[in-house]
Amino acid sequence: MELTVALVIGALTASGVYLLLRARTFPVVLGLTLLSYGVNLFLFATGRLMTGGQPILGSTETYSDPLPQALVLTAIVIGFAMTAFVVVLALRSQADHQDDHVDGANHNGHQNSTVSQEQSR
C-alpha cells in the first residue's frame, strides 16, 4: 500500500510540475490542480497509512491520526478557492490579450507570438 500511494503521489506531483511549466494558462491551471492533489495525498499520508483505523476513541483497536485529516481538509478548501481564482484570472488574461500565453500577447507585432505558439507546440 505504501508503494502504491508513494507512486501515485509522485506521478501526480511530476505531472503537476510538468504542466505548471507549460506556456499556456490552461495547462498551468491543470498543473496547479494536480500538484495540490499530490500535496493533499502527501499530507494525508503523514499520519501513517493504515486500514480500518478510526480517529475516535473506543471505536477500534488501531487509531488513525486525526490531525492530518484536518490539515488536508483545510488545504483542500484553500486549494479549491485558489484554483477558482486562478481560473478567473486566466480567463481575464485571455480576454485582455486575446491570447492564452502566460506572458500575455506581444503588442509589438504578431511575429513573436506566432513564434512562441510554434515553440509551445
Binding site: T25, M82, F85, V86, L89, A90, S93, D96, V102, G104
Partner: peptide, 8 residues
C-alpha cells in the same frame, strides 16, 4: 493581468 497571473 500578466504580472498578477505570474504572482498568483
Amino acid at each position: 493581468t500578466v504580472p498578477g497571473l505570474h504572482y498568483v
